[in-house]
């Protein structure tokens, strides 16, 4: 059987809210090491990779590897019934066709359970190579959210260029043009307010803003976001979810015809 208990149920709620518009359905692959999800959006332009570690949960048991097919809008409907302070336990029998979600209030005076019907989803796993990136930028997740939201109101695509001067986001549209540059800045005392640019070589890539804006729905999960860029390769937008794991979004670049 599979059983995973998380005291901070709000994390699970935020996670599903971050994914549900990008990814309609996907398999929760559970094993003794934790829970993983790899899923593409419907247009196959971006990929979500979620990895939650077994030791990030208060309790985790998985006797057999299983792929649990999840419809994210449906999971979201159920998680909306959990309180923000609730502890959430996920449970499934081996080869089950449903996932049980149990919500316990913090003072244990309210317990509810919901069964989510599981789906059978054929999904191919893409091989994401481990690699060095030309530029890695850590910045406040709220800053990333603001930049992509602001630029989405001006244009459809963004040119992201990382140089020793900083990281620049440029777009243009019917209204005009916009450029936002962030410089390396380690002045703030709190690490989550710093902008750290680790540059091996300058790089510039163009991406659809719609997707970058969608990734920002993960902002409530983490105070910091990391962007990784290499010429002619997908950007990685990564949010560390405390000690529990991470969610990474990969978006294919736009390339000259």
């Amino acid at each position: 059987m599979f059983e995973a208990r998380i005291t901070q149920g709000a994390v699970l709620k935020k996670l599903v809210e971050a994914l549900k518009e990008l990814v309609t359905e996907g398999n929760f692959d559970v094993s003794s090491t934790g829970l993983q999800l790899q899923a593409m959006d419907s247009s196959h332009v971006c990929l979500v990779s979620l990895a939650l570690r077994e030791d990030g949960f208060e309790h985790f048991r998985c006797d057999r590897n299983m792929a649990m097919g999840i419809h994210f809008q449906n999971l979201s409907k159920i998680l909306k019934c959990a309180g923000n302070e609730d502890t959430i336990t996920l449970k499934a029998e081996d080869n089950a066709d449903q996932l049980t979600l149990m919500f316990e209030s913090s003072n244990q005076d309210r317990i509810s359970d919901f069964d989510l019907k599981l789906m059978s989803i054929e999904s191919e796993h893409l091989g994401i190579p481990d690699q060095e990136y030309s530029a890695e930028i850590k910045m406040p997740s709220s800053e990333y959210q603001r930049i992509v939201r602001d630029l989405t109101s001006i244009g459809d695509t963004v040119l992201i260029s990382a140089t020793k001067e900083g990281i620049k986001f440029s777009t243009s549209g019917d209204v005009g043009t916009a450029n936002v540059t962030l410089r390396h800045n380690t002045t703030p005392e709190k690490p989550e307010e710093q902008t750290i640019i680790d540059l091996k070589e300058p790089v510039a890539l163009t991406f659809a803003l719609r997707y970058l804006n969608n990734f920002a729905k993960a902002t409530p999960l983490a105070p910091v976001v990391k962007l990784s860029l290499t010429k002619d390769l997908p950007i990685v937008v990564e949010y560390q979810i405390g000690e529990l794991g991470a969610v990474k979004f990969y978006l294919a670049p736009k390339i000259d015809d």
Binding site: H44, V45, E124, L126, L251, A252, K254, D257
Partner: peptide, 13 residues
């Protein structure tokens, strides 16, 4: 500009 699919980079369709 042309939008590539993610599978073009990581294998698959």
């Amino acid at each position: 500009m042309k939008q590539k699919s993610i599978g073009a980079f990581f294998g698959g369709a």
